Computed example of a mutant assay.
Amino acid sequence: MNISPLFAGALSVLAGVGTALAAQNAVIVDDLHPGVVIDKQNMMAADLAIWNPPSRYYDMTSALVDGGYTLFRFPNGSLSNDYHWNGIGSYDSTGLWTADTTKWARGFLGETIYRGTTKDNYGFVRRSHLADGKKETMWWGEILDPVDPPWIVVEFPEKMNLDSLQIDWGELRPKAFEFAYWTEDYAEYPGVHQALENKLKTESVVRVNSETTKYKFAQIRTRYVAIRFKTPDLPSKGVQIREMKLFSGESDLLEGNNYKFYAMSTRNGDKARTDWTDIKWDFEEFMKYIKTLPNAQAVICVNAGTGTSKEAAAWVRYANKVKGYNIRQWQIGNEL
């Protein structure tokens, strides 16, 4: 960014005098002759996402060049958090993928095995493992930050009457948990789990004495409820819930799909998806393509959802040391 002499002089004056004198040296902005020159190099950027075949990008080449695009991101934004860049590697017993650091094969998409958040986007619909009716699946909340331990929120489309809950724990269960509900009718976007103002009221702190907790409480009416934990009450590896039920009388309100789950601090771990395979727009195909574009630079978004820091480091090593691509721009997950 270049600053005009007039603007630079005004800045130096403002920095060196008191408030009274600074008011006398205000900069007058002239829209026809701006004092700030914008550097237009690398202004235009585009996602070259993995869901398109390579032929589509080759067909778009002239449009990308004419449009002045020079920064190109792979494998996408949000989808990057499900993508393993290297198909050569292995899963450990908990579902963590370790990629080879010297050899490469076409990457693939993984599906988390500990997901607690409901999914319904772009035709990809999945129930939460917290209430999918299967004891063999579970949500695993990991202690990523001791000050902000894992927790979950249930959101209903309207206020519901609630009077009891049941939680079936995994091997990692807490000493106690807090059962809370939102005190107002509506939580503004993005919702209770990210609200700047906390309006959760604690209904009770429930002790956990066995692998199944059943808790009856005086009826409450709310749209949002939360299960929260304190770090001292959790095992060092976090907390696991296999199934959760919320009752209104005899009806389990989590039996259908008329609600949303939000689960914070879900542990990494996945399995390879079988409904989306043979993704031909892979890392090497992407790099081969952008070499055909003038002044093109790669922006790589590493997997911060099902991936690990070790997997990301392996990608950097393979790209820059093994292949010599000298990629300088790396993003850690999407919108973090």
Rank of each mutant, 00 (worst) to 15 (best):
Y57H: 02
S265Y: 10
G333L: 04
F247L: 04
W97V: 02
L64W: 00
W330L: 04
V239Y: 01
N42G: 04
A312S: 14
L130Y: 01
K260N: 14
P294C: 05
L32S: 13
G133H: 03
T212E: 03
E136P: 02
E171D: 14
E136H: 12
G116V: 06
N334E: 09
V316C: 09
D270F: 04
D282G: 04
K321S: 11
W151L: 03
D185H: 07
E250T: 15
F283P: 00
D82N: 13
E184Q: 14
D82I: 04
T277H: 06
G123D: 06
F261A: 01
V322T: 13
Q194H: 13
S80N: 03
G9T: 11
K260M: 10
T117A: 10
R173I: 00
K216S: 12
N268R: 13
S164H: 02
E111L: 10
K40G: 07
I300E: 00
N334R: 07
E243W: 00
N2H: 13
M43Q: 14
T222Q: 04
S164Q: 05
S55Y: 05
Y69E: 01
P294N: 08
S90W: 08
L130F: 03
I50N: 01
S309W: 09
L130W: 00
D278Q: 12
D132W: 06
M244V: 14
Q331E: 15
K135I: 15
L336S: 12
D39Y: 02
V206Q: 07
A319T: 10
Y181I: 06
T308E: 09
I38R: 13
P174G: 05
Q194C: 09
P5W: 05
P235C: 09
L200W: 02
V225H: 03
E142N: 12
E158C: 05
G95L: 02
G107Y: 00
I88L: 13
P34V: 09
T306E: 03
R328A: 08
L14Y: 08
G141D: 02
N76E: 14
V65I: 15
M138I: 08
P54T: 04
L109F: 10
F74A: 01
N320I: 12
T292K: 14
Y189S: 13
S236E: 15
K214E: 07
T277M: 10
K280Y: 06
L172A: 12
I290D: 03
T202Q: 10
G35F: 07
A296Y: 03
E285N: 06
M43D: 09
V29E: 11
M287R: 10
H84Y: 12
E155V: 08
E171V: 14
K271V: 15
G170C: 05
F156H: 08
D59P: 02
A15H: 11
V125D: 08
P54V: 08
A218G: 10
A15Y: 08
R228E: 06
D59S: 13
N320Y: 08
A46W: 01
F72P: 00
